[in-house]
Design a binder for these strands. Structure first.
Lengths: 212, 212
DNA sequence: CCGACTATTGGACTGGTGGACAGGGTCGCC
DNA sequence: GGCGACCCTGTCCACCAGTCCAATAGTCGG
């Protein structure tokens, strides 16, 4: 039932051992024939870059909509894995992984599961969780040094409010808002409200940097 | 080799079928005894909330550092799964999952893999990729309506630059910067640079909303 | 060729912003 | 009781930001 796509069968030594009864083809089947559901389709990334892998997966799914696709790469990359998985691949692993591991992946994916290497998994989960943590206290390291009132003002400003609006919402004078803001600028080492907002919101952006 | 922790063994009917030779204990072993490596430890979340599950996993890993932990829940929650996995759990699944599935999970985790349900996986991956996409063109839907020059100005402003600084960096007059900004405000429906920055950066924040 | 769009700049004006300087009130702690 | 926080308010002032009116010039498609 297992089918692998690779330009040179020699590149798939371990896969051959894992699935002796499997087929290795040089290219995707031209027709979307009756090669229906459930079937496992192993794609060897070869020299494709991250975007190329993603497109290949998408193309394969257009031809064989219900295929369970696992992408194998000789030089696994996290970005490539994300692209592949986002396009519908059910797994991403090293092309030279041990036959036992390949079989295990085959079982998991064949039963409707997904396989992602522990490193990528840890990285994605760690990033997501860091974001969740920092979202609970939108400042984590940034706003924790502020007094409650300063924090409240900073939060309002981060939502785009002017001093006058903050004053009205918090029931204080515009002058007081300025005072809290001045203290906040000093503590956080920013020069104006714009940098404040960027500082407060960058914790979310941190995910992008840490994942990609 | 398999060990499950649950206050009432009756709650783990399917697990019992999956691992007839397994042991079910009411609580974590008090000592960090010689119950070393490789061993699978199945924790039943019972009535713990997301944070509680995370703490439990962390506590278990402190006592048995090399345990492979899988968390089972009668009412799986994505947030709880994130907490558990972030604290070092290797898997998260439904407590009443079919014995076959539980055994499969045991194989994967026992061999160093991780198990995450397809739904959570899809959600996390989708969110991460949405973020990556929006980061490639930080405007996706926001800045795409702008002219190249307006976009450039908006990008500088989003980094915290003043009009004067933008003018210097782009080699134009401060007056021109204002003109581009005015057009940008109009197109995006924002009233000032602060809301502009929020709009540009909120694509990143979208991840938090979609994951949690 | 002409209209639509974009890029560029000028002047004048209004309102928001941030800093400087100067207070007063409450609360907890040594 | 001082002393140090945090919270609140005031005035004056320089500067920045955003808008209105107005103008020149290049590009692109009909």
């Amino acid at each position: 039932m297992a089918v692998a796509i690779c330009s040179r069968a020699a590149l798939l030594g371990t896969w051959r051992k894992a699935f002796p009864e499997g087929r290795i083809c040089a290219a995707l089947p031209a027709t979307s024939g009756k090669d229906e559901g459930g079937g496992l389709l192993w794609l060897h990334a070869e020299r494709r870059d991250a975007a190329g892998v993603g497109e290949w997966v998408a193309d394969a799914l257009r031809r064989i909509p219900h295929a369970r696709i696992v992408v194998m790469s000789d030089a696994p990359e996290q970005v490539a894995a994300l692209h592949a998985l986002n396009q519908g691949a059910r797994g991403y692993c090293h092309a030279q992984a041990a036959p036992d591991l390949l079989r295990q992946i085959g079982v998991v994916v064949g039963n409707g599961g997904m396989w992602i290497g522990p490193e990528l998994m840890q990285r994605v989960l760690g990033s997501v969780n860091a974001l969740l943590d920092s979202r609970g206290a939108p400042s984590g390291d940034s706003l924790s040094a502020l007094t409650p009132r300063e924090r409240a003002v900073a939060m309002e400003v981060s939502k785009g409010a002017t001093n006058k609006e903050v004053a009205r919402r918090l029931g204080i004078t515009e002058r007081t808002v300025k005072a809290h803001l001045a203290a906040t600028f000093e503590k956080l080492g920013v020069r104006d409200r714009l940098e404040l907002v960027i500082r407060v919101r960058e914790s979310a952006t941190r995910l992008a940097r840490s994942v990609a």
